[in-house]
Each structure stands twice: as structure tokens, then as C-alpha cells.
């Protein structure tokens, strides 16, 4: 078991997949992160050196990911709402923000658009 940013990963897990388990790290960021520390794309968590694990953890902790990123998202929505913009109001009402029609098919907006958005 290997700790990356305080999370325990089994050794056979791909490094790429382990990194992408963090909110805010997708395919592009994970590949760039791995290239930065000379980890090949098919590397497994158990194969990489301890130095690379600590480097990855240090780099991840300096990035805006996980709860910081969620907070930033909420703050952005809140700012729009506080200014009284149309986008802010639509978020608050749980309706589509970008001019989509609302007669049908707005389940995604209902699910996601809220002031206290989860992520």
C-alpha cells in the first residue's frame, strides 16, 4: 500500500488511475504530472520510487484540487448570485444557465445547478 496525498492505494493500481481519483485531476493533468517526475503512463503505484511518491504528493498538495477546488467552484457561483446576475439567479433556481430551453430535458441542470454545488 502506498500513500499519495494521504490516500492509500494498492500497489497494483496504475499511477494514472490513482492520480485521477483526486477531484480536479483528469487525463491531461495526470499525464503531465507523471511526465514531470519521469513516470511512464503504464507505471503501477508499487513500481515507482519513494522519491517519486513524495514528489507527487508535494506537487498535488500545491495544486488546487479536491475540497479547495470545490470551494472555488461554490465561491464562483456565490459571487454570481450576490452580484445579482442572470447566471447567478439561474443557478439559484436550479435551471439551465446558458440559454437552453427548459420545457423538457433539464435534469442535469436540476441536479447540478445550485448555490451549494457539490462538485
Amino acid at each position: 500500500m502506498v500513500f499519495i496525498l494521504g490516500v492509500n492505494f494498492p500497489e497494483q493500481r496504475l499511477v494514472k488511475r490513482a492520480l485521477e481519483s483526486f477531484y480536479g485531476v483528469g487525463p491531461s493533468i495526470s499525464l503531465r504530472l507523471m511526465a514531470k517526475f519521469h513516470i511512464h503512463p503504464t507505471a503501477r503505484v508499487g513500481e515507482i520510487a519513494t522519491k517519486q511518491v513524495t514528489d507527487l504528493t508535494a506537487e498535488l498538495s500545491s495544486m488546487t484540487i479536491e475540497n479547495d477546488l470545490r470551494r472555488r467552484l461554490r465561491d464562483n457561483i456565490k459571487r454570481l448570485r450576490d452580484m445579482g446576475t442572470y447566471r447567478g439567479r439561474r443557478h439559484a433556481m436550479g435551471l439551465p444557465v446558458r440559454g437552453q430551453s427548459t420545457q423538457t430535458q433539464i435534469s442535469t441542470a436540476r441536479k447540478l445547478n445550485k448555490i451549494e454545488r457539490k462538485g
Binding site: 519521469h38 511512464h40 503512463p41 503504464t42
Partner: peptide
């Protein structure tokens, strides 16, 4: 093809 480890 980047399937084995590499290092500078």
C-alpha cells in the same frame, strides 16, 4: 512506446 520505466 513508454511501457517501461525511464529516467534522465
Amino acid at each position: 512506446n513508454a511501457h517501461t520505466e525511464y529516467a534522465p
